[in-house]
Nucleic acid binder design. Structure first.
Length: 479
RNA sequence: GGCGGCGUACCCAAGUGGCAAGGGAGCAGUCUGCAAAACUGCCAUCCAGCGGUUCGAAUCCGCUCGCCGCCUCCA
């Protein structure tokens, strides 16, 4: 069995069969850099990050390109509002996006092209389209003729006649057809412009992806991804222009689209003012909690960012690392064991099967918590019987965690690091906490439980929770 | 109006033909000076509703109800 994935183009699951397993080509639409990226961008980036990691994990050689749209109406408008240069604004938000991605633990794609660095190729594709009669130039603009390709609409399931009937696009007299879209836009004074056969101007939105894809990957690629909302018109137009230009179809074999993130059940939108930036979310939760939250549902389903679901993700991360710490404390042999214990491959099967089935990270996470339960049970039994725990069983479990951590990009810290980081956010200095713990333990030794309990309550009121374990008293920050 | 998706326990969420994963909450128990954590048990005879196909359906088909997305250069 191999990977099966849901293809938006055929609306069904298909066996993944790339053109060349040693060079799987994947392109994902990146951000338009005119503002800080929000949690929706995070979902797209994390979803495809996991897909990228998993394909590599399964032995494919992957070339992954994710672009930056760094010239666009929104960028120009925002730059004008702020009175800065559009290019400068774009650079600023590319940097911010890169920082956000790094904070989320998103691996760098193989290529990160920018539209403005692909102007030559954009012009070349546009010329090809004109040469083949699929595009026409008017007053410095170049438009793509939607009607000339009869399979237009195959991705979004739209048909041209109905689109025309309900067209909400403002009619531009210079277009042959209201549905035609701009490949090249004539430059206005003060806007970023490049020389072209049609005069000074800048690229349209859809064409940049086709050009970047061809430049860095190929004329036919394996996987093309992006948010659901990009299906129409962006990806539909990309397919049309790419296939028209190259004469090859399909442009991309598999189209993958991630679902939206709602905030407290409402769609994120400027009008509602509920756009949640990645950096703001990271002030409330660690990147691991955010990633776990995002990966706890299937990547195609819509998800709700709510206080409750984030708290649950946080509790789950905590439970995971607590168990990891227990294993390290109570069965060091398991940690010291071979990182790939023989006979453990079977242990991975459930995880692999889940991931093979359209990247079902939710099921993988469910399986991981089954293993967490197994580990705790084994440790409890050892504690009760006074015998040492079987290191073999636990080393299998650790192996499963480690492997899953490689493609999920979570659950891969060492427990010491996790708790150190968490406890570093304590409002009370660690020395003071330690001093109070010693004081309480002295009281406990003297069986002055009233005093012991009052110290614990004092700490709890300051956000510090205590746990008496066989290894001594431990503390953690509780929100 | 066109296209697409969804509806699984108190909440979140897997499961797409063979007796309903996982997490959170709750209740009871073990452990503990007491807690916490962990573990154990309980918690959907049932998967929006109604029909149909089938030996067998949450899973396939039809209809109904409810929710949502796209059709606006919003991931």
């Amino acid at each position: 069995m191999g990977i099966r994935l849901y293809n938006s183009l055929t609306r069904g699951k298909e066996d993944f069969s790339p053109g060349n397993p040693d060079r799987v080509l994947m392109y994902v639409c990146g951000p338009t850099v005119y503002a800080h990226s929000h949690i929706g961008h995070a979902r797209s980036a994390v979803s495809f990050d996991v897909i990228y990691r998993y394909l590599k994990y399964r032995g494919y050689k992957v070339e992954y390109a994710r672009n930056y749209t760094d010239v666009d109406d929104k960028i120009i408008n925002r730059a004008n509002e702020e009175g800065v240069d559009p290019a400068e604004l774009a650079v600023r938000y590319i940097k911010a996006f890169d920082e956000d991605m790094a904070a989320l633990g998103v691996e760098l794609p193989t290529y990160r092209p920018k539209a403005t660095e692909t102007i030559k190729e954009i012009i070349e594709v546009t010329e090809r389209l004109i040469g083949k009669g699929f595009a026409y130039a008017v007053d410095g603009d170049v438009y793509y003729s939607v009607k000339l390709k009869k399979d237009y609409g195959k991705l979004s399931g739209k048909n041209i006649d109905e689109l025309e009937a309900g067209a909400r696009v403002e009619v531009d007299e210079r277009k042959n057809d209201p549905l035609d879209f701009a490949l090249w836009k004539a430059g206005k004074p003060g806007e970023p412009s490049w020389e072209s056969p049609w005069g000074m101007g800048r690229p349209g939105w859809h064409i940049e992806c086709s050009a970047m894809c061809m430049k860095w990957l190929d004329e036919t690629i394996d996987i093309h991804g992006g948010g659901r909302d990009l299906i129409f018109p962006h990806h539909e137009n990309e397919i049309a222009q790419s296939e028209a230009a190259t004469g090859k179809a399909p442009y991309a074999r598999y189209w993958l689209h991630n679902g939206f993130v709602n905030i407290e059940k409402e769609k994120m939108s400027k009008s509602l003012g509920n756009i949640l930036n990645i950096r703001d979310a990271l002030k409330e939760h660690t990147s691991e909690v955010l990633r776990l939250f995002l990966l706890s549902s299937h990547y195609r389903s819509p998800i709700d960012y709510t206080q409750d679901s984030l708290n649950e993700a946080e509790a789950a991360v905590e439970r995971f690392y607590k168990t990891l710490k227990r294993i390290a404390d109570e069965c060091p042999d398991a940690v010291a064991a071979d990182s790939r214990p023989s006979g453990s491959e079977e242990r991975l099967n459930g995880l692999i099967e889940a991931m093979d089935d359209d990247f079902n990270t939710a099921e993988v996470i469910g399986n991981i918590f089954k293993e967490v339960n197994r580990a705790n049970r084994a440790l409890d039994e050892a504690r009760a019987s006074g015998k040492r725990t079987s290191a073999t069983e636990l080393s299998f479990i650790l192996f499963a965690f480690k492997e899953a951590g490689r493609f999920l990009g979570i659950f891969n810290k060492d427990p010491e690091g996790y708790f150190r980081e968490k406890n570093s956010r304590s409002a009370m200095p660690a020395e003071e906490i330690e001093r109070l713990i010693m004081e309480r333990n002295e009281a406990r030794r003297l069986r002055d439980f009233k005093k012991a309990d009052s110290i614990r309550e004092l700490l709890l009121s300051r956000g510090i929770a205590l746990e008496d374990t066989p290894k001594g008293t431990e503390w953690t920050v509780r929100r």
